[in-house]
Design a binder for these strands. Structure first.
Lengths: 233, 233
DNA sequence: TTCCTTATAGTTTATTTGACTACAAGTATA
DNA sequence: TATACTTGTAGTCAAATAAACTATAAGGAA
């Protein structure tokens, strides 16, 4: 499938689209990235970033391209959620959409609404409402996946700044899993995993005892990934 | 999307198909259901049961229909794996396929090759080779999912006969996870979960001490599902 | 200096694992 | 009939883990 003209390359598949659930974390809140559409039947309504797939690209590539085009975000790890295929999910025709999701540090990316998007913004997950089509369902499945995943893989670190305190990390878990935890126990368990590298630095500008800062250690992460582990706190 | 003629109902989507990975378990071996195609470009080659999706049905419905048409198996719980979207996966045109998987008791179903299938049969997973298109990859992903799932949900019971011994169950785990286990410890752990109902029956026609038979208890299963659990043995 | 908040260390008890040993209940065979 | 053999089932024990706490340290703020 090479040697195609530019127009041919941009030919899209008819009945399949992509939609992305992008999670971020700020000020103790789990957030999701939404776009207000600038054209089409969903004009001026908020929904997940997504769109049509070129005939020449994989869905993984399509997800990355669409996200860049719509929001300015690029080079992130998008994982497939699943296909959403209710025959009536899209009002104009029969369209199956493939959901993707990702976790990113909000601070690392500048949002920039692309050509077909009127606006891009982060919304607290707990306050999202009135999404187009079945996007609420896709978000819900994304959230479920995130909750399951965070208990089995240390993916939470993708949501925090480079340097963070143990309490920030614990709050992230509390927010995502929706339950309170015990500080000393959390400390002990997470430190024993050797997943965090302590830094010779402390928090600044806090009105109480400053906590030590830590960094995520990608090497131990790889080892843990292979032998499997349990993050149930 | 109602009030359509029969021909309209059978119109299919152009670039999407379904493929099913159906696992069974017999004589200590994990098996997978394959069909030898009777027509099309994959005629006479073995592959996963699958096919085209009607415009009026969800992918879940399509998976069930196709499985029935091709193999005679119906009313089973099929779970979606994910979409497979390599632009070159299908030689004739750009087609994305959505994988499904299921676990069934082989004894409960009679195989019957449908109109477009020349033959249907169970194959030991360890001995499968030369599947059409990217079906080997789909099978592999299905197997990975099975291994992950069986550690977190008591799905293994779908593969055993109604009444089974603890050793049979342990062998199932050993086969799927590919590692040996300790009998007494396995007993203790699985029994404590209250997931099995002991029967007043024993094995028959065995040339050694007969083991007690157990049954799966769907009620406790529901409870366990909700609060989550860990089947790591 | 005292109070308040958060960080961090440590204790205690119950529970869970993993690696074993021991014995029971059958069948096969000598 | 006795003995060996195979598999089932019960129990032991030490080590690791988890959950619920208590206690103390380190700051800033009043």
């Amino acid at each position: 499938m090479n040697n195609l003209s530019s127009a041919e390359k941009k030919a899209t598949l008819e009945s399949i689209t992509i939609d992305c659930v992008i999670f971020g974390f700020k000020a103790g809140n789990l957030e999701v990235l939404l776009v207000r559409h600038g054209e089409g039947i969903s004009k001026d309504k908020w929904g997940l970033p997504g769109g049509w797939i070129y005939k020449t690209e994989s869905t993984d590539d399509a997800a990355n391209r669409l996200l860049l085009e719509l929001t300015g975000i690029k080079d992130i790890y998008l994982e497939q959620l699943r296909a959403f295929s209710d025959p009536d999910r899209f009002p104009l025709s029969r369209v199956i959409t493939i959901g993707y999701y990702a976790l990113i540090k909000e601070e690392d990316y500048d949002l920039k609404a692309g050509a077909t998007a009127a606006e891009v913004a982060w919304f607290k997950v707990s306050q999202v409402k009135d999404l187009i089509y079945d996007h609420a369902q896709i978000l819900e499945i994304g959230l479920k996946r995130l909750r399951r995943r965070i208990k089995q893989e240390p993916i939470g670190f993708n949501l925090l700044p480079q340097k963070f305190t143990l309490l920030q990390l614990m709050h992230l878990y509390e927010e995502i899993l929706g339950k309170e935890m015990d500080k000393p126990n959390f400390r002990r368990k997470i430190l024993k995993m050797n997943l965090l590298t302590p830094l010779n630095e402390k928090e600044k500008d806090v009105s109480h005892r400053a906590a030590k800062l830590y960094q995520f250690n990608p090497e131990t992460y790889q080892q843990l990934l292979e032998k499997g582990f349990n993050f149930e706190f």
